[in-house]
Amino acid sequence: MTYHARTNHLLVESIGDELLVYDRLNHHAHRLNRTAALVWRHCEGKRDPREIAAELGATLGCTLDPRAVTAALDDLAGAGLMEQAPAGPRVSRAHVVRALKAAAVGAALPAVVTIVAPAPAEADSPTAQPAKKTIDLRGKEAFVLGVTPATGPGLVGGITAFTGFPGSTPPVLVTVHIPPDADIELNAENCQNLLKMMQDALDRMMTGGLAASQMQIQSQRDAIQSVKDQCKGVH
């Protein structure tokens, strides 16, 4: 059987002796190490794995086991870089590694590493984190910092928790704003209450869909009163 490398909708950059391949159909990016790159380049529909191995062996100046080529073809097909998947059973990578080590083969094993290219919301802070992870009790130290009249872009004298939903734009922002002169003692228990309140709001937003994407605290006064109410009985 002969093999055809896929070429349509692919952007290919050779970087050193490796290849970076970007698939415009599914936005996957693949890194092919030298051996995998050579195998892929030789898949022109004219040779079988044994012939490819022989030709690459001559190029690399070493013996290349045809099983390594078959393993590379499996990897390349799995990455969607071949026109069709290799026929027959998949080659066990561990088996190939053992065999090649035993044969003391000089060429590096083929390797294809794939990532999914980030959508803008994923590559951009702070939406890369799943929603549930961003509300976390470890954040409570931020409450102490929150009452400092800071000048950062994310927080000015308040308490802010970001969260992102897949595909949501912009990230949902759950905020309780407490001015520095607020008559509230920010101890650990109050922080726990605040966090619970914010988590409850987040849960309501998640169950209610993305349309209600922001906890609407009507005013700073209401927010503070809300916190005070939450904190009743704590002291």
């Binding site: 952007l11 950059e13 970087i15 050193g16 490796e18 290849l19 970076l20 970007y22 415009r24 936005h27 990016a29 890194r31 190490n33 590493v113 990532i115 290219a117 980030p118 959508a119 803008p120 590559a123 951009d124």
Partner: peptide
């Protein structure tokens, strides 16, 4: 390797989906 570095950068390229050719 340079290709590994490029992959690391690609994973953090904000407009990669919109302009992959230029980005690569």
């Amino acid at each position: 390797s340079a290709a590994e570095a490029a992959m690391e950068l690609l994973a953090n390229t904000i407009p990669i989906r919109a302009r992959p050719r230029r980005a690569l």
